[in-house]
Structures are given as C-alpha cells and as structure tokens.
C-alpha cells in the first residue's frame, strides 16, 4: 500500500469499533490530528495477531493530537502523539 499522507496533513482517526485485535487506541478514535512523521510500511497487526501474513503492508504515521482535541479540556501546552496505520486514518479538510 502506498502512503497517501505527508507530514503536516490534517487527518482524523476513524471512529470505528472493532472486537478483534487492533493497535488504534480507543481514546484517539474519531480525533483530529496532524501527521508528524511518515514511517515505512509494516505488516498489518490486525492480521498478524491471527497468524496471517499481514499483507498488504500498511504505511505507518506518527500523528500529533492537541490535548484539548482528545480530552475536551486544555492542559497547558500538551500534545499526545501516537502511531497509527493508514487504514485507520481519513483526510480531514
């Protein structure tokens, strides 16, 4: 899978609910952030967890979230970053 986002892009984490293994923390679902770093592509952990191959590999991004966006209240100058696979991200214009 080709990376579709570049550093600085505005993105939103999908607000999906899944019952199977995934690495997108619940507290960040539906939250808006900015692409801070673009990493390589990695095997899909949602497949690896069930002994499958994890293909196609997924581009991985470090996403920066403003604290207030995540928790609804400000806490000084505070930022949360998390690493999110591309299929959990949508463009936020």
């Amino acid at each position: 899978m080709k990376p579709v986002f570049v550093t600085g892009d505005k993105v939103k984490v999908r607000a999906a609910e899944v019952a199977t293994h995934c690495r997108t923390p619940h507290y960040l679902r539906g939250k808006r952030g900015i692409v801070a770093r673009v990493f390589g592509a990695y095997p899909n952990p949602e497949q690896l967890a069930y002994h499958r191959l994890g293909v196609p590999y997924l581009p991985l991004y470090q996403i920066e979230f403003d604290f207030k966006e995540v928790w609804g209240k400000a806490a000084g100058a505070t930022v949360i970053t998390a690493d999110i696979y591309q299929h959990w991200l949508e463009r936020d214009n």
């Binding site: 690495r23 997108t24 923390p25 990493f39 990695y42 952990p45 991985l60 470090q62 000084g76 100058a77 505070t78 930022v79 949360i80 970053t81 998390a82 690493d83 999110i84 696979y85």
Partner: peptide, 11 residues
C-alpha cells in the same frame, strides 16, 4: 510543552 508519546505500533 509536554509531548506524551504513545508507542502504539512498530516504533
């Protein structure tokens, strides 16, 4: 500025 770095994936 505090940056909380959540290690959620391969990094």
């Amino acid at each position: 500025e505090i940056r909380v770095v959540d290690s959620t994936a391969d990094m």
